[in-house]
Design a protein around this nucleic acid. Structure first.
Lengths: 148, 148
DNA sequence: TTATAAAAATACCAAAAGGTCTTTTAGTCT
DNA sequence: AGACTAAAAGACCTTTTGGTATTTTTATAA
């Protein structure tokens, strides 16, 4: 569905927010260990998130990543757009030039529903709503990946 | 949604089938021109489709690609599975290990609907149904790509 | 105020996706 | 049979994605 970079960004940020709720401010080391993602790659991704203003960080001893509680919740869509643009939930399945409501490709009508479903999902859900669910649900088996 | 290879396979095969309906058997030259796709890349893709038995071809003078009318219709899902596997409509959005009905990730329930929608679409639609729509609809503006 | 811990920056590396070009093989039409 | 045509095969190339390792900067705690 989404690419690795987006996936790691989701998981890392949900973990960070959930630790923030518990009064902690995890660093990279702790974060990648918790979500079992590649260390330096994830660091790079989080750096970008900080630069984009999606996430805050403090350097030095006792530092780490955190979300500013005063700022509005961060929708998944913002992250997806920043990392991979709109191509995962936009455009024609056929890759056609002029495919739209007036001039639909054979798959157009079936696909608009799917597309809207994806858009709705990532617009509605935020890192914060997910982190809250994650904290509540003891069954969730951490944020461990598929094959690890 | 799907990758380039899948996209070119869809478009090329729909074009070929629609020409077949009109009693013609296009070669790659004609095909890539019609759908405006990269010549050799598309050739390679169609070769693979032939090897997989999805499509037939004849070499030599007057040769080209065609679908055996006796064989059953070819669902898009067969093509997608052969080219990119199930990852576009399967697996956890978060990339989580143990995400399923019993042990869902926070996005699981919203996502199963989307996933099922995609699966339904590519299971139902075939190259043949699309080619028929394509032939009928004069508005369809050929099978030209987005940016070409 | 200095040692240290942590993020930021930078440079590289590997694999996969996307794409091109040339040669070979196998038909078919004359 | 032979010329020609078109698909098949295979060798490359480029870009993007995914990932690693090292160095630099900066904040803070002692």
């Amino acid at each position: 569905m989404f690419n690795k970079e987006t996936e790691y960004a989701f998981r890392a940020m949900v973990y960070i927010q959930s630790r923030n709720y518990a009064g902690h401010r995890p660093g990279i080391e702790e974060t990648v260990k918790a979500i079992d993602a590649p260390h330096f790659y994830t660091a790079k991704i989080l750096q970008r998130m900080v630069r984009l203003g999606f996430l805050q960080s403090v350097k030095g001893k006792g530092g780490g990543f955190y979300f500013d509680a005063d700022r509005p919740d961060l929708p998944l869509k913002d992250i997806v757009m920043a990392i991979e643009g709109d191509r995962s939930f936009c455009g024609c399945v056929f890759g056609l030039k002029h495919c739209d409501e007036q001039n639909p490709c054979p798959l157009h009508h079936q696909f608009v529903e799917i597309r809207e479903g994806i858009d709705r999902m990532i617009s509605t859900q935020t890192i914060q709503t997910l982190a809250q669910k994650y904290v509540k649900d003891e069954n969730m088996d951490d944020l461990l990946p598929r094959s690890g």
